[in-house]
Amino acid sequence: MTLTPGAFVRTGLLVLLAVIIQVAGIQSIPILGGTVDITPLFVAAVAIYAGSIPGAIVGFATGLLLDLAIGQTLGLSSLVLTALGYGVGRYRDMRDPSHGLLPIPVAAAATAGYYAAVAAVSFMLEIGATVSLLVLREAVITVLLNVAIALPFFALIRRILRPVLAVDPLQRMRRRQGSEPTATGPLGLRGLEVNR
């Protein structure tokens, strides 16, 4: 991500919008016994398009705003979402993924990881009450719902962030596909390909 004032404003507004939409809107619309949770999706999307440092910073800001807005333990969501943003960003940095269906596994892993980490940190902090298995059911439904909206959601975030991205993974993929040979050359030997 190019660190310009415009990038900060754009990302900051996105963070505010994601948290407000989640807690004031989406959270009250139950679907099949669960709800869509766009906070881990949003952090994962930023991390996959912008890298590990922006991912971690956006994760921290989103988590902090979430904790402040709903009045829950300060630092809990920011800790988990920072790790999530960094983790997804590192995956992007190291593996350079650019497949068109990438948002689906990333959304599933990010949502499941977020829920597992929130549960783990909550257990470590203060939970003394009985825990129902329905927590697991709700988490699974949320993962499935997030997977269902992953492609359009990631596309939307990419579209909004594209002007401030240093490198767009999808464009890089298309460029590579266009310039790289699609098959071996006329003799069937590598190195004698005809570039299209």
């Binding site: 440092i53 971690a56 902090l64 333990t73 630092g75």
Partner: peptide, 21 residues
């Protein structure tokens, strides 16, 4: 730089958690 950013953010989160409790 990457590690420093991560350490600062995680550290801030833990400080807030501890302080809040």
């Amino acid at each position: 730089r990457r590690r420093a950013v991560l350490a600062v953010l995680v550290g801030l989160s833990i400080i807030m958690l501890t302080g809040y409790f």
